[in-house]
């Protein structure tokens, strides 16, 4: 039987949550920016290295500059949060540690991953140096546009959620 896990995409608006969502689910990308209102939910079944399958139910939520504005109901029953920021915009990651502390405080058992998206627009070393200076740990740098690390990230997450 295929098990399922709920994964929620969080972060500021315009950081590329919907682009990552579309890239992972439909392997599609569009330059047009369309605001996400509320939440859109889709699922994708991935095959794990052990031959089993996992149904990843991805909740693509609307972006907020303050994590506390995210509707709490969207976070219910989650197995993982993916905090996405725009690697080119400091305002989307400068408060990341406070935001992660807030999430951990209300959902202590949920796995949290941090993604720096739009890495095609900036040198990875520059982004890493800036984040290091702010004492921010990042799990993965992605580009929904070029498809860099997107599928790899979700597959690793699926593995971690089932191990």
């Amino acid at each position: 039987m295929t098990s399922s896990k709920k994964v929620v995409l969080l972060g500021h608006f315009g950081v590329g949550k919907t682009s990552l969502f579309r890239r992972f689910i439909d392997n599609a990308f569009s330059e047009d920016y369309k605001v996400t209102l509320g939440v859109q939910i889709k699922k994708k079944v991935v095959e794990l290295p052990n031959g089993k399958e996992l149904s990843m139910i991805i909740w693509d939520t609307e972006g907020h500059t303050d994590i506390e504005d995210t509707r709490k109901s969207y976070l219910l029953g989650s197995h993982a949060f993916i905090y996405v920021f725009d690697s080119t915009r400091e305002e989307t990651y400068k408060n990341i540690n406070e935001d992660l502390a807030y999430l951990t405080n209300i959902h202590s058992k949920v796995l949290i991953k941090v993604i720096g998206n739009k890495i095609d627009l900036i040198k990875e070393k520059t982004a890493k140096d800036q984040l290091k200076a702010l004492n921010i740990n990042v799990d993965c740098f992605t580009s929904a546009k070029t498809n860099k690390n997107v599928h790899e990230f979700f597959l690793d997450l699926a593995n971690e959620l089932t191990s």
């Binding site: 608006f13 315009g14 920016y33 605001v35 209102l37 509320g38 609307e62 972006g63 915009r89 305002e91």
Partner: peptide, 19 residues
Amino acid sequence: YSELHTVAQQKNESILLAR
């Protein structure tokens, strides 16, 4: 919600454009 979407789209676009 569609009406709200138009407002949110304009607001976010203008913020992103300014940035």
